[in-house]
Simulated scan of single mutants.
Amino acid sequence: MTATAVSNPRRPRGPVPNALTSAQLPRFVELYTLIGALVVSAAVLAMLGFSIVGWLVLGAVIYLLGIGILSAVVENRRKATDRVIRGLVTIAFFLALIPLVSTLITVIFNGTPALTWDFIFKSGGTVFDPNTLKVTVIQGSLQALVGTLIITGIAAAISIPIGILAAIYLVEYAQPKQWMARTVTFLVDVMTGIPSIVAGLFAFSLFTLIVGPKAFSGFSASIALSVLMIPIVIRSTEEMLKLVSTELREASFALGVTKFSTIVRIVLPTAIAGIVTGVMLAISRVIGETAPIFIAASFTNNFNANPFDGPMQTYPVMAYSEYKFPSTDIAASYQSAWGAALLLVILVVILNLIARIIAKVFAPKGLR
């Protein structure tokens, strides 16, 4: 009886404690640890020489060490590792936000004073007063707004159909080991890494051979931008089409639907949100390009809405030219440069909002 009792001891009544949840740090321990780490970091740097960057870096290191030790002592090794990794991921996230937020704040702070009605909706240029013999510089960006929309619109009209159709060929029709598919994939990979200035030189050389020397035009700049857009559209659309379930295609074929109708009615609507996102990424990639447009279309303060004749102005080129080649009123030129940069950011945001609305409207009902 005694041996049995010793060999089979009675377990205590009630639930068995779980090693993963039995010991828990307080709910806001991470916040308290972060505050303490920043205080300790400030105290240490106050004696050695204070700096914002050093304070944040040392505070992050102290926080990771502190939260790891606290969790290892109170909880367990697994939770300590989880808290440290989450801390590293959070720090990396904020490090990625720093340049983005800093750039956005700088552009808004410096560009907001330039955003007047006349600046947005009137063309810039110079006015000569014969009575006083004074030349007055008028700051305006209407020519840049029109040029940006025309050049980017033509580039998108060229690139989007070519890119989507090429992606459909690669995913739906081409065999993986077919020489044509491998050639197109190789060229797309090569074109993705082409520097933007090379695209501008290509377009300028092409139109110089066709039209003649100094063949500056908005259409030439659109060709340069399309060289940069096409591989992005192809690659993004290809990946979105691959995500469409094979069962959807097979179900459509089982009902006797042709391959073309399956692609148009099933595959493309299912992937429309990702395709539109990829297209907008491509547009956002090229709408802020300066070098290819500067080479192919040059720049001008005169209003020009004809993409086939004469130089055209765009927001990125305007920001560069106003800063690099200021007028006699240097302060006004710098303000115009920041204003053009801010208007470019606003235009990109508007285009992205329109793209999201389009993707939501045309997506299948179950994916809205």
Rank of each mutant, 00 (worst) to 15 (best):
I194H: 05
A215H: 06
I162Q: 10
F128T: 03
L170H: 02
A215F: 04
V137T: 11
L142C: 08
S159W: 06
L201H: 01
S141N: 09
I168K: 04
S123R: 09
Y169A: 08
Q175N: 03
A199K: 05
F109M: 13
F121R: 06
F202V: 15
P195K: 13
V171N: 13
P176W: 15
F121K: 07
L209N: 01
L165A: 14
T116W: 01
I168T: 14
L170K: 00
V146D: 12
S141D: 12
G212A: 08
L206G: 14
V135C: 05
F186G: 01
G153F: 09
F186W: 11
P176F: 15
F119R: 07
G125D: 04
S196F: 08
S205H: 01
T116Y: 10
L133C: 06
L170Y: 03
A156S: 08
Q175R: 10
D118A: 12
V107S: 06
V146W: 14
F204D: 02
P113K: 06
L133D: 15
A167G: 01
S205R: 00
A144H: 03
A157F: 09
A199M: 12
F207W: 11
A215V: 05
L209Y: 04
T136M: 04
Q143W: 05
P195N: 11
I151Y: 02
V198L: 15
I138V: 12
F109A: 12
F204S: 00
R182M: 11
G140V: 07
I158Y: 02
L165K: 09
A181M: 07
L165P: 03
L206R: 04
G193R: 05
V127I: 12
T152E: 08
V107G: 08
T148Y: 02
V184K: 00
G140I: 12
V146Q: 10
V127Q: 02
K214I: 02
P161M: 07
D189V: 15
V211L: 11
K214W: 01
S123E: 11
L142N: 01
T152H: 03
P176D: 15
F109D: 11
L187G: 02
L201G: 13
K122S: 14
A166C: 10
S141M: 13
G153R: 11
D129Q: 11
P176L: 15
F204N: 01
V190L: 15
G212T: 04
A215Q: 03
V135N: 13
N131R: 02
I197K: 07
G193K: 14
T183A: 00
T132V: 14
V198F: 13
F119Y: 15
A181G: 12
L142R: 09
A215G: 05
G147Y: 03
T185M: 04
L142I: 13
V188N: 08
L133P: 08
Q139N: 13
F121P: 02
L142F: 12
